[in-house]
Amino acid sequence: METEFTPIASAIGGGLIGASAVLLMLTLGRIMGATGILAGLLTPASRADFLWRAAVVAGMITGPVIYLGLTGGFPAVQVPISTPQMLIGGFIVGMGVTYGSGCTSGHGVCGMARLSPRSIAATLTFMFACGVTVYATRHLIGA
């Protein structure tokens, strides 16, 4: 399935992701990591801890609705894979980000921006593993 090259929309989106990370640090002093925020929501340390995490997640889910208001349509969510593959992938992502203590937002954006050696190593590792997996599923298996 081909997708259109969208450098400007993608750069604006990336800028907003960065802005949210900076604002969260400025106001609540936290890392904008989807994994960390969600994981803490599952077992919050306190009521106040639960509330800010739930509010961030609720805000995130509002994102596509704001996009709808601005553009007149929801952002595209095209799924070129089977449901079992999606479920297996989701389970593996959940395990991986828990052992790896972060994902694309936490390590890839916030940690890399802090030049954290752990985050740089984690990001290089998951980008490489993702590339190999895409190559294997698209060009080796069933090619």
Binding site: V93, H107, A129, G131, T133, T137
Partner: peptide
């Protein structure tokens, strides 16, 4: 850290979604 990140990369490559 590295094993978990590798696992995450595999899941990301299978599904196309990160958290």
């Amino acid at each position: 850290l590295l094993g978990g990140s590798a696992l995450f990369g595999i899941g990301w490559g299978l599904s196309g979604f990160c958290p």
